[in-house]
Amino acid sequence: MLNDKIILLVEDNPDDVELTLRAFKKSNLMNEVIVKRDGAEALDFFFGKDGVADKGNNGLPAVILLDLKLPKIDGLEVLKKLRADERTKLIPTVILTSSKEQNDVVNGYKSGCNSYIRKPVDFNRFAEAVRQMGLYWLVLNEATPKSRGL
């Protein structure tokens, strides 16, 4: 079911969290959204004591929205760690950031992100971007072979 899929949002700015959730709602994406406030928390979510990485596909998010500028461990580092682990390397990850620096974009793709979205200042455009992203990764994009097997 479409709505069973979990979305993981890694974002330190509470305003942005609020606005992103609002954008989801506006786009009728009713999935459960788990929010992590920094890179360490995000990694802990996967690989910590009760991490979801071991729980198989039930606990794994269908898509991760990742900010680059994060306290403690930054977004690129988080992405690399996820890609290095066999259990999490296939989870679609979208970088969601204010930066448009060439370097950030290149490094993001190099580290294995699936999409790169720059947060526009205009909320309407932001909502549109989030909607497109949700539509693609949650609805259109087929689940990875691994998850389909279960």
Partner: peptide, 21 residues
């Protein structure tokens, strides 16, 4: 310049977003 692009835009986004809300 990097922080301008990142940090100055974030509050703007908040202002715009909540105005919109």
């Amino acid at each position: 310049a990097y922080s301008v692009s990142h940090d100055l835009r974030a509050p703007l986004r908040t202002i715009d977003g909540f105005s919109h809300a």
